[in-house]
Design a protein around this nucleic acid. Structure first.
Lengths: 236, 236
DNA sequence: GCGACCGTTCGGTCCGCGCCGAACGACCGC
DNA sequence: GCGGTCGTTCGGCGCGGACCGAACGGTCGC
């Protein structure tokens, strides 16, 4: 299943790694080492602007955390990232992190209190309904979630076809893709198939756009019945 | 370019986010919120086992770091992850982090103390020197790294030719290939070109095999100068 | 061997942080 | 209005971490 359900140990390990990177000096060292090259302690100390003894302590902590490896060569000790996993982790953090420090945006238009049951996300379906559909399609093996890619199965093409959704492979984007729902923090269905699905549901009047907030969607009676008939989903 | 070249600000922001997650309590809160549901401060306090006042401080820090959003509703304050980016970041960290805490591996058969500066890997060059050569050749566009394949460019044939390395296409294997260096966590050059390169360097006495450990190589003075002259590499 | 250098360890200072209990303001239900 | 609940802020305690300079063991070059 897509939702991991983090267990206690995860949080502990997470905090360990985070603590190892919490000091600006250590974060700078890690970034420096991210180039893949090895560096001596003194080089790193000079680069981040601390005394060699201080750098040594930081390097020790990074070693303890398992983020670094040291290689002794003569009177030098070359530090490098422990392995590819660590490099991947840092890269992911660096690419994914930038939440700007939340410059005050609190007033604004005030969110509609409750997350919409169904809403559109770009050109596909999101919200609780989007997640429910995604999960059901996975359950039916219409969409198959692999370690790297998500694919639409033969059966999936048939299931969608039965609902009047015609999917044609496009050059520009994958047939199916998972999109993380901010409100649900679960995946819903994106990609060409996701877009065609939304189109069809709107055409068939299974979904209708709200007059006041065009991104919000309402499930009609026929839509509820249609989804139950075609996919076996019970909706409130 | 493969190496992203992280800048100073990156490291700072990295340490900020890391510091926000460094405390076990905060990491636990973040994991709890990763389910996507909002929680009140007291709920979170109870869940992670601290006093409400303590939780409040932690929540304040997470807010400051931009990882959380709060939504006031009556006398309750519902905390949730700030946005999908944060969820993605946490997910990535949780999936990518597991560097096991470095289970003690010190005893063992004792590696030859220091990783060889240069060593042969089958029939081509590995170790730090192998990686340096590989990187430099990529930099010079002598070797071009594509998404699927690695190719030797026209210029690359010329560069190698200038060093006396004659490469001829063979039936049995690709001209160039990348070989992952276990000690360096970087690629070095393999394939026909890699083999011919090592041959030539040995013939020219730029490299010499160690008497005691034949796979280890020593870079001679002339080798150092030759590599600087032909490839512009500065070696220690 | 003798210096020169590299890196770690040690002692010491200081700041910040995590934790709590108590007090305070905000809000709900009655 | 009045208690009860929720959450924050405030003092206060104690620990751990960050930093440095000085001292110590290893290694290289001569």
């Amino acid at each position: 299943m897509a939702t991991p359900g983090t267990r206690a140990g995860d949080a502990d390990r997470l905090s360990e790694v985070a603590a190892a990177l919490a000091a600006p000096v250590r974060a700078a060292i890690a970034c420096q080492l991210l180039s893949g090259t090895a560096h001596t302690g003194r080089e790193l100390a000079r680069h981040v602007g601390v005394a060699p003894s201080t750098a040594s302590e930081h390097l020790g902590r990074l070693l303890d955390a398992g983020l670094l490896t040291v290689e002794v060569q003569g009177r030098h000790r070359y530090y490098r990232l422990a392995d590819a996993d660590v490099a991947v982790l840092l890269e992911r953090m660096l690419t994914a992190l930038p939440d700007p420090p939340t410059t005050t945006a609190p007033p604004g238009p005030r969110l509609p209190a409750a997350m919409a049951f169904a809403r559109s996300c770009y050109d596909h379906l999101a919200g609780r309904l989007g997640v429910a559909l995604h999960d059901r399609l996975v359950e039916l093996d219409a969409v198959r979630v692999g370690p790297d890619a998500v694919t639409l199965t033969e059966g999936g093409v048939a299931v969608l076809g039965g609902m009047g959704v015609v999917v044609a492979r496009e050059r520009t984007r994958p047939l199916v893709r998972q999109c993380l729902d901010w409100s649900q923090r679960r995946h819903h269905l994106a990609g060409t198939a996701g877009a065609r699905l939304l189109d069809t549901l709107l055409e068939r009047r299974w979904l209708q756009r709200s007059a006041t907030r065009p991104r919000e969607l309402r499930l009609s009676r026929s839509g509820r019945e249609g989804l139950r008939a075609h996919l076996g989903i019970e909706l409130p």
